[in-house]
Design a protein around this nucleic acid. Structure first.
Lengths: 198, 198, 198, 198
DNA sequence: CATGAATGAGTTTTCATTCAT
DNA sequence: TATGAATGAAAACTCATTCAT
């Protein structure tokens, strides 16, 4: 059948795309935009350099796509928090553990690079601009507010608290790229003192 | 006079070197090794590209020199802590403020890049290897220990505490590269709860 | 078919390599390692400069490959002598004419350059070191010995004779690079008096 | 006194020039025009690169001067032959030994390079053009002619004989640049058979 | 006269991208 | 689709030459 043939084609195409994107995050996140050669990505994805251009018009487009993807990813991660069970602080703890241990750091790295490095495509820059820390703060704000009302979280401007929390988390993600993740359980305990204040 | 002539030459040479190194940290820390073109550094230093090679054999050598320098720099910064007045926790607060606000973040950035990026000269990698977080932990360990004895710092394995503190600080330095430094005073307060536990 | 496709690719690749090597001997032998620009070779081979680097990692590697090749070539030439018909001295005459007239002088030139010039890659130097005149002497020794037994060749230490013969030949090859080859027939006659002693 | 002062100045200047020229032959003869950096010559002469330009306008001028010098030198050497004592063939033997053992090969090398390499200043090329092997042949012609009349030298066109002799000698000079001069005495014996025919 | 820092044009080398197969 | 050869523009690096001291 035509259609099933076409579907198969599409599926293959999508799989290839994923395959490339997967390879690309890894390489980009470790070497930066400029430091990454298309041939490296092709290599990592197990295809020829030429084929990359059947799926992505250019290095820039590939990177931009990746950043877009990474941003969605990180947002969903944040939103998970609300689905966890337990009190607000427990939710926050679970979220923290998830972020620090899960090892999606490549995404954060990518976003960070897009934000801080020069030599990044304008399109990626634009994407990032609309996606400041504020966005994340807004996402978590209700949770922290609730935590304060319950008395689990220290008093003070909740926005500031969230901002501080996110900064620390982000920083740690960046560091995490290379460290061997050890005793994070304890770390989370210590970390959370910052917001529980005890 | 011969000697004064020679001295002058030497002085010029040293000044140029500093001038180049200064320009180079800035550029490298923002763009990474690969993303940095020699011409950018030359530009930033206000000299011709060719002249760079009178002072440094190659991009790699320049970068390696810089990493070496950055490591010394960051150690001295840490050691400052012991010269501050006040109780241990006050010293730590001062150090924290110094680090976060002073804007030496370029150095940290550089070290981090050397540690985490591929495409970094082997010589730099080797330098970094002998210079893990442990070194810093050892530097601050006595201060934290003392703080615990005085009762200013929360109980628990002090090594772990220092490690946690340093990780957070390092992470923030990385982030700081680009952010507009705002209300850090408050942040430091919140941050320190992590180690004071109150 | 896969396989035929692959074979074709390989063939193209090999042809290109030869094409480049051919162009390179010519240029290198006339201009020396340093005097030769990659663009000249590319030009002579009718390809773009960039393509050279698909086939050879660097100028040095290209040169070294060439020297290796030249050494093999020159040895085979010597070994030809034994296949010629006639008495020993006739074989030597034929060999001499072959060498002097055939115009493989580019190879000799190359080897000579590798041996005598500075600014030649270490790898090439090493190759050459194991390939002194002695090697050639040993190759021709039996032929000369036989010639003496037959009475065609003058008495005396045959090694010395061979060495002398080879030196003269080598020297002439070097000169020959540029001269218009004229009446070599006579020259060979005169030349051979050196070893026939009459 | 003014004048003596000026003379001294001149003398120093000339000494410097010689010093530079001496250094330059050595380097040029081994590395070729393109392979030689002005800084190498300066180094070899023990002066600063800048100072070279007080004595020679450019690399090309320096090289050209050198070629001129080398040509004069080699001609005088040839002319020596006539001053030696003994029969023609003895004179030739002495000349041959002088040339082969004295180790002025750097000059020959230089001339050869000027003749055969590309990348040589036009001025040097022009000099060389008027200075072909013919010139040398003419110089030695009378000596060989006389030798034939005396019966020391084999019959045949003397021009051809001289040409052949000179070619061989020149070739050996080129080779000699690097070899450790060993038992040349014997070689000369063997060599001369070429022209004595016995 | 002497030095060596400084320049900039020219080379080598790299790599995103295209294209024939 | 898939490959990898081919191109060319851009970057790293070299070096003859100039120039301030």
């Amino acid at each position: 059948m035509r259609s099933s043939n076409k579907e198969k084609q599409d599926q293959i195409r999508n799989e290839r795309r994923e395959q490339i994107l997967d390879a690309a995050v890894k390489v980009f996140s470790r070497r930066g935009v400029v430091g990454t050669k298309m041939s490296m990505i092709a290599n990592a994805a197990g295809i020829s350099p030429g084929l990359l251009y059947h799926y992505f018009k250019s290095k820039d487009e590939l990177f931009t796509t990746l950043v877009e993807w990474a941003m969605e990813q990180s947002h969903s991660t944040m939103m998970y928090a609300y689905q966890f069970s337990g009190s607000p602080i427990e939710k926050i703890r679970t979220l923290t553990e998830l972020i620090l241990c899960e090892g999606d750091s490549a995404y954060f790295m990518l976003i960070h690079q897009a934000r801080t490095s020069d030599g990044v495509p304008e399109s990626a820059k634009r994407l990032i601009k609309h996606h400041s820390m504020e966005t994340y703060v807004d996402q978590l704000y209700p949770l922290f507010k609730e935590g304060q009302q319950v008395g689990d979280i220290a008093a003070g401007d909740p926005k500031e608290l969230v901002y501080c929390y996110l900064s620390v988390i982000s920083g740690l993600m960046l560091l995490a790229t290379q460290e061997d993740e050890g005793q994070y359980k304890m770390k989370v305990d210590i970390l959370l003192r910052m917001i529980t204040g005890s």
